[in-house]
Design a protein around this nucleic acid. Structure first.
Lengths: 270, 270
DNA sequence: GAGTGGTCTAGACCACCAT
DNA sequence: TGGTGGTCTAGACCACTCG
C-alpha cells in the first residue's frame, strides 16, 4: 500500500493514505486487504448476515483495482466467511464468534499453540526400514526402498491425545533422525532445512486401538479412535511424509467448509 | 471457445479451431479448459510428477488469455491435482488412478450415484417442533421457533450405512414435509423449489450409538460411529439445514486436500 | 540470464437480482 | 432499469528457480 506497485504511468501518485492501509513488506496487497476485511468481520463491524460493500466501492476505498479486491474476497470465501452470488452484494456468513479462526490443518504443534494450548509429546521410537507396499505407493518409492519410521505420542496440557506413526523417505528421514529426541515440531525444523510441506491429502475415518495404541493413550485395546491419514508433498510435488494419526475420541474434531467448488468428499470404505 | 467472447477490436478473428475446444453453451471458458486439462491428467497424458505446459503456452494453445488459463489451473489446484510455485512449471500430483474423482461433499444421494452405488433409505419420522438452543443457534433462529425434524436411515446397496437427523427452518421444512415419504434426495427436490444449498460447514468426529441409532443401524448401543455435523446455507447466506449424520465404521471415509490457504482444520472437543 | 508463476492494473461485456 | 458479481482480455513488473 505504501508504494504504487507497478503503475506504468505515474498516474494517481497521491492516494497513499487510503483507509485500511497497513505495513506491507512484501506481503501481497490482496492478503493485507483480506486480513483487513477479516478483521472487520470478526470485530463485529459486519455481523452475521450483513452485506459487504460492493467490489467497486472497496476498490475505490482502498485505492486498488477491482481484481485485487476480488482476490481478497476469494480468500474470505474459501474460509467460509462470506458468500457470493451474481447480482447481490456479498453476505457475511459467520459472525464475530463463530468460525473466525479457521485453524489451518498443518502442524500439530502450531495448531495447538494457535489455540493457546500447551502441546507436548515424546518420541517413542525411530527406526530405519524398508518400505512396505502402502508406504511405497504413498511416498512414490520402489517397494523395499529405505524409509524412516517415527512413532510419537502427542499430548495437550500433559494429557495423551494422539498417536502418530509417520514414514519419511530416506533423505527426509535422515534429517529427522538427526534431530534431538525432544523436538516438538519436526515440520518446523524440516522447514529450516528447506523441506517444506505445501500440499497434503487427508483421509478421516475410524480405527480401533491396537495394544500399542492402548498402552500409549491409556485406553482399552479395541476402543474406537478418530484416524487421520495424511500424505504431504513439497512444493515440487514430491511426497515427503506419510502419516497415520489416531486421536482419542472427544479430544478433537475436524472442521471444513465447502462451497460450490471444493475438495472435501466422502469415499467408500476405510 | 467458439466465438471471440468480448474482443473489443476484432483482432484475432480466425483462431476458432484451436485444439481442445469443446461444446460450450454458457459454460465459462475456464471451466471447459479445466475439464480439458483434468481429462488429460486422468487419461494419463500427464502422469504423477509430470510437468504441465507453461501458462503462456497453454494460453497460446487454447487461444485464450493468461488470466483464463490461471483460473482453470486454480480449479485443478484446489482439487489437489497439481502443485504450483513460482519459478517452475506446475507439477501433477495425482496420477490417473488416484484422487482423480473428488466426490464433492454434498448430497448423499448424488455422492452414492456418482460412485455407481445404489443409494436408498427410508424416512423414519417427520415432526414439527420448537427449536432447542443448538438448533436455534445453528439456524440463526429465535429459541423456540418452529422447525421441522426429519430422521432418516440411509442405505447403500440395501445395507444400512448412516442415520441422518436433520432440522429445517419452518419454510424449508414445510416443503420437505409435503414431499412423498419415499423421496430419495430432499436436496434435489428442494433445489427444484428454488432452495439451493451452496455453502456448508462441516464438523467430523466420533459419537456413540444411542438406542435409536443401534436399532436403525443394527449395531450395539454404545458403539462408535463416525459423526458429521453440517450446517448448510443458501446463496443469500441464510441457514437452510442443520444435520447430524452418523456412519457405521468402515463404510465411509472423509477426504480432503489442503494447500497453502485452506479451510480444513482441527478444533478442540466434540 | 532465461523461463515461469505471482501480483496488479484498466477496461469491457454479460448474467443475474432487486426495485 | 440499475446495481452487482462473474468472466475475459491485454499488458506490465516482480520474485523465484534452475541450468
Amino acid at each position: 500500500m505504501n508504494q504504487a506497485p507497478q503503475a506504468p504511468q505515474s498516474e494517481k501518485p497521491e492516494t497513499p493514505d487510503t483507509p485500511g492501509r497497513r505495513a506491507s513488506g512484501r506481503t501481497p496487497l490482496y492478503l493485507t486487504l483480506a486480513a483487513d476485511l477479516r478483521g472487520a468481520i470478526t470485530a463485529g463491524e459486519y455481523g452475521s448476515g450483513a452485506r459487504l460493500p460492493a467490489e467497486d466501492e472497496l476498490a475505490r476505498r482502498y485505492g486498488v483495482s477491482r481484481g485485487t479486491v476480488r482476490q481478497a474476497l476469494a480468500a474470505l470465501r474459501t474460509d467460509g466467511l462470506i458468500t457470493s452470488r451474481r447480482g447481490t452484494r456479498r453476505v457475511v456468513l459467520a459472525g464475530p464468534g463463530e468460525g473466525g479462526a479457521v485453524t489451518e490443518l498443518r502442524s500439530f504443534t502450531r495448531w495447538a499453540r494457535s489455540l493457546g494450548q500447551r502441546p507436548g509429546g515424546r518420541t517413542v521410537s525411530v527406526e530405519e526400514g524398508a518400505a512396505d507396499a502402502e508406504e511405497a505407493e504413498q511416498l512414490r518409492l520402489e517397494s523395499g526402498a529405505a524409509v524412516h519410521r517415527v512413532l510419537r505420542l502427542r499430548t495437550l496440557a500433559g494429557e495423551p491425545v494422539m498417536v502418530e506413526r509417520t514414514t519419511y523417505p530416506r533423505e527426509v528421514g535422515a534429517l529427522v533422525a538427526a534431530m534431538p529426541p525432544d523436538t516438538l515440531s519436526y515440520s518446523e525444523q524440516l522447514a529450516r532445512h528447506g523441506v517444506l510441506f505445501t500440499d497434503a491429502h487427508h483421509t478421516i475415518d475410524i480405527a480401533f486401538a491396537d495394544a500399542e495404541d492402548a498402552a500409549l493413550l491409556g485406553c482399552r485395546a479395541g476402543e474406537a479412535l478418530l484416524r487421520e491419514r495424511r500424505r504431504s508433498t513439497d512444493p515440487a510435488g514430491t511426497p515427503v511424509e506419510w502419516s497415520q494419526d489416531r486421536y482419542l475420541p472427544g479430544t478433537v474434531a475436524f472442521t471444513a467448509h465447502s462451497t460450490g467448488a471444493f475438495a472435501l468428499g466422502r469415499r467408500l470404505g476405510p
